[in-house]
């Protein structure tokens, strides 16, 4: 999967600058849970795309600022988040579920049935 980083087939399209959200990625026997911090993003401004084995998160911050506000101190200087991940074959991209609450996205990507661990009973003969 690491080879994807240098994959020449990746489209080198021009993209608007974006913030990179902090994430946690936790794997258990059944699949992967991805948590992404997307403060300021309402549900309708979140875009989760799967293209081949690439997962792209893209989201727009939707703050309503008072008219005529002058910024004094700015740490969040872009209104867009973006981050990409490579998915491996054993993950079942069809079965992804997503929840967004208080600016935290929770994605659950289960492993395909054939990739689930199986316990093999050892018969003592």
């Amino acid at each position: 999967m690491n080879d994807q980083v240098a994959n020449p087939q990746t489209p080198a399209q021009e993209e608007a600058a974006a913030l990179r959200p902090a994430v946690d990625v936790i794997e258990d026997a059944g699949g992967i849970t991805l948590l992404a911090d997307l403060p300021g993003v309402p549900k309708e401004a979140l875009d989760i795309r799967i293209d081949g084995d690439t997962l792209t998160l893209e989201a727009q911050i939707g703050l309503s600022l008072p008219e005529g506000m002058e910024p004094h101190h700015v740490e969040v200087d872009l209104l867009r988040y973006r981050r990409r991940f490579g998915l491996s074959k054993e993950l079942d991209a069809e079965q992804i579920t997503a929840e967004l609450a208080h600016g935290v996205l929770k994605l659950r990507i289960p492993k395909a049935a054939h990739a689930q661990p199986r316990k093999i009973a050892v018969a003592v003969g």
């Binding site: 999967m1 690491n2 994807q4 980083v5 240098a6 990746t10 993209e15 600058a17 974006a18 913030l19 990179r20 990625v25 794997e27 992967i32 690439t54 200087d77 872009l78 973006r82 981050r83 990409r84 991940f85 490579g86 998915l87 491996s88 054993e90 993950l91």
Partner: peptide, 15 residues
């Protein structure tokens, strides 16, 4: 390898 990232693509644009 299960969840590799496109770090290289990101670093250039992202803050």
């Amino acid at each position: 390898d299960l969840f590799a990232e496109f770090e290289r693509l990101q670093n250039e644009f992202d803050r």
